[in-house]
Design a protein around this nucleic acid. Structure first.
Lengths: 128, 128
DNA sequence: CGCATTGTTTGACAACCATAAAACAATGCG
DNA sequence: CGCATTGTTTTATGGTTGTCAAACAATGCG
């Protein structure tokens, strides 16, 4: 049962700034990341439902984010959960993710309620 | 003679996060911005010489950065100087530019004079 | 005025990208 | 085991991008 595998992703020191910025420069991927910051983790189907894109497109975005070092994927059963690599990103590029998350909250009109969750998730990070 | 024109660029509130991230996700443009952070301003030819790309390519990158709201262009005589829109970016996306500049200093070993100049330029603005 | 200097625009080209559909793979459930 | 569920890979397509070269435009200098 609970065989939990972790998919390969780049080491922290191999994460490149331009690739992270490029990964986050796509609106859909930015939404995925913003949502991950509040929700913690997410399956592929969940992301697709929430964003209204095809599942293969979602899979592609997840791969892009993973290869850029922004998320890591953990397989549990037949689902695959992706989650933010917050600690790794903070270690490599201090403050970057937080400022991007805060900025992504500003940009959306319905950010008022969401904004606090983002900040809360940002401050409550301590495990993993 | 002293006629100084300013080229059109997006208003602060129209700067979009994804476009800024996309503009900075190109290594050459990131170098341009990192250098602007230390040097203050720069002509097109200066940038081209320093980066080893064709002048038309440089011009294209300058346009991309300007349209994304990252730099503004000021024409003086027959030169055009570009400079970072630090205040506007800080107002719209607090902390974003600073964290990217700090990260770009860490990531690029080829940048000869870097982090302490970045901090100096950032500190000369009175904030932080 | 002519001309060199400084950038921009256009054209061309190869590479990459976001997207979707369909085929494929893996996994657990009954 | 068969099968539904969950994602990935493949294939195709339309759009975008980075690059250079060449033509064009603007500007000040002599």
């Amino acid at each position: 049962m609970g065989s939990m595998r972790l998919l390969p992703h780049p080491a922290t020191e191999d994460i490149e700034l331009t690739e992270v910025l490029r990964a986050l420069s796509d609106p859909i991927r930015l939404k995925i990341v913003a949502r991950l910051a509040t929700v913690g983790e997410m399956t592929c189907g969940e992301a697709g439902d929430h964003l209204g894109v095809h599942k293969s497109t979602t899979s592609h975005h997840h791969r892009t984010l993973r290869e850029a070092g922004v998320v890591c994927t953990k397989q549990e059963g037949r689902m695959k959960y992706i989650s933010l690599r917050r600690d790794d990103l903070d270690a490599r590029f201090p403050g970057l993710l937080d400022s991007i998350l805060a900025a992504s909250g500003d940009a959306s009109p319905s950010a008022a309620s969401r904004d606090q969750s983002v900040l809360a998730a940002s401050g409550e990070r301590g495990r993993r």
